[in-house]
Design a protein around this nucleic acid. Structure first.
Lengths: 190, 190
DNA sequence: ACAGTAGTGGCAGTGACTGCCATGTTGGCA
DNA sequence: TGCCAACATGGCAGTCACTGCCACTACTGT
């Protein structure tokens, strides 16, 4: 659930708090003025740390806003270990979504909406995703499956965010199913 | 065919020549020392232009090495206008490959091999590809189809480059067909 | 021959990111 | 309780990608 676990370690708690502060500051500034009009110095100042410290928490300013995104991807990937069937993937999506219910979902939605408008940030998100895919790097077959699912997931998330941003109700799992149907129809056509 | 067309315009010819020089210099340096250990100043010096001029030809140093790549993608995209059948896409790949026969293919292969080893450059290539996909930006259905094909194409190109780099013979079209088969099998499975 | 325009180089400036060192904080241990 | 080691932070200087501006040169059409 992404909770700050109650560790006895004071340092650990502070680090997590600082990290959360930076992330919140970045998200706020990016939302208001776009990621390319926002400097690291601004984010650091808003989060109450020095720029030098900022880079001890995140390698780039874009990464600072993509924590929730990354966490969701990781959680989903953990549920899709081998190359399961499409039905199992849909289940995994539903389960991961349930796992993120509440505040995390809101943040995920906020980030996804941002991505739809902020070119620079979307590129960074794509980069992170690509790096994850590359790290796995199994045989050709596994790779193709992973990336094909990733395409479906990404398209579904964007569509979901677009609907929700417009005030409409939308079910991610249902959208994901539709996207998969498109892929299926496309692949099966001679 | 990417030929330097015999224009009467001297300026145009020089510009194309300069562009080619920069591209060759970048490709050479990246191959020898990796893109992240190569500075723009080095590339510019090797190509015999000032760093300032370099940026009048390419927006980033990575772009300088991805010209052939970009040209191939564009040529392929031009042949896949609407959402055709899978068989038509395979034909388009074959036709585009034929169009690039000779020196362009060698350069394409060289770039693709580079991409398999150079993380920084691969990220840049992915970025370019993502930007192309985003520009089209039709409805959900079109987008999913485009990106799904892009995954197949990218995987096939990488596999092809890997085989060829190892000295083995490999047919891109055949590999692409196999990749599509993986997608088909995956999508049709319940 | 002459104006207009395109191509180029130099320079100064911004902003991302890193290595190094000094300083303050925390946790474990005698 | 007091001390030492490990950790966290800030500041500083430096590199490098990339841009705007201005002056200069070289090509082009008349």
């Amino acid at each position: 659930m992404l909770l700050v676990t109650d560790t006895t370690d004071l340092r650990e708690r502070r680090r997590l708090a600082t990290r959360a502060d930076i992330e919140a500051a970045a998200l706020d500034l990016f939302t208001r003025q776009g990621s390319d009009r926002t400097t690291v110095d601004e984010i650091a100042a808003a989060a109450g740390v020095s720029p030098r410290t900022f880079f001890r928490y995140f390698p780039t300013k874009e990464d600072a806003a993509l924590g929730t995104n990354r966490a969701f991807d990781a959680a989903l990937a953990a549920r899709i270990d081998g190359p399961p069937s499409l039905a199992e993937i849909v289940d995994a999506v539903a389960a991961t979504l349930a796992e993120f219910d509440g505040a995390p979902i809101d943040r995920l939605l906020q980030v996804r909406c941002l991505l739809n408008h902020d070119d620079n940030l979307r590129r960074a998100a794509l980069r992170l995703e690509a790096e994850r895919c590359w790290e796995v790097h199994g045989d050709l077959r596994t790779r193709v499956m992973n990336e094909t699912v990733a395409v479906a997931m990404r398209a579904a998330l964007d569509e979901w965010a677009t609907h929700r941003a417009a005030g409409a109700d939308a079910d991610l799992v249902e959208i994901f199913r539709q996207v998969c149907a498109v892929q299926r129809e496309m692949c099966s056509r001679e």
